[in-house]
Computed example of a mutant assay.
Amino acid sequence: MQSCARCGFVVYPAEKINCIDQNWHKACFHCDVCKMVLTPNNFVSHKKRPYCSVHNPRNNTFTSVYETPININAKKQSKASSEVRGHPEQNHSSSMHAIQHVSVL
């Protein structure tokens, strides 16, 4: 019996995929990054490991958790709200500075 390249357990013919010169369970043949289950028609091989086309290391376009649209939007909102919070303090200090100038004159 042949063993799975990912989990090491026996691969029976009904559940076997032979790709990248190795045997895999159908469920074990998934992208190393996002875990999307792959088929012999939609995988990319890099250093004998399977990847989906999005996480192909040759493209150097790994999608990190930090770069998801939700997190990018949250970062923008956080930055915008901190700038809004910063303006009243700046306006307050500039008005205090103006008052000091007026009182000196």
Rank of each mutant, 00 (worst) to 15 (best):
M1L: 06
Q2I: 09
S3P: 01
C4V: 00
C4A: 02
A5C: 09
A5M: 04
C7T: 07
G8Q: 07
Y12V: 03
Y12Q: 04
Y12W: 11
Y12S: 03
P13Y: 06
P13N: 10
P13K: 06
E15F: 02
K16C: 08
I17G: 02
N18E: 14
C19M: 15
I20G: 08
Q22K: 15
Q22D: 06
Q22P: 01
N23H: 11
W24P: 05
H25A: 01
H25C: 01
H25D: 03
H25R: 02
H25Q: 03
A27I: 10
A27E: 14
F29T: 10
F29C: 08
H30E: 04
C31H: 00
C31N: 01
D32K: 02
K35S: 00
M36V: 09
V37M: 00
T39V: 11
P40R: 04
P40N: 08
N42R: 06
V44W: 01
V44D: 00
S45H: 05
H46R: 06
K47A: 09
K48I: 00
K48Q: 12
R49M: 08
P50A: 06
Y51N: 03
C52W: 01
H55S: 02
H55F: 03
P57N: 04
R58N: 10
R58T: 06
N60T: 07
N60S: 12
F62A: 01
F62C: 01
F62Q: 00
F62G: 00
F62E: 00
F62L: 05
T63S: 04
V65R: 10
Y66N: 15
Y66C: 14
E67Q: 13
T68N: 05
P69S: 11
P69I: 09
I70Y: 11
I70H: 12
N71C: 11
I72P: 04
N73C: 08
N73H: 06
A74W: 02
K76R: 13
Q77G: 08
Q77W: 10
S78T: 13
K79T: 15
A80R: 15
A80H: 14
S81C: 12
R85D: 15
G86R: 15
G86A: 15
H87Y: 14
H87I: 07
E89G: 09
Q90C: 11
Q90N: 13
N91P: 03
N91S: 15
H92T: 11
S93L: 14
S93Y: 07
S94K: 12
S95A: 13
M96Y: 11
H97Q: 15
I99H: 04
Q100L: 13
H101I: 11
H101V: 10
V102H: 07
V102M: 08
V104Y: 12
V104Q: 14
V104I: 14
L105G: 14
L105R: 13
L105C: 12
L105K: 13
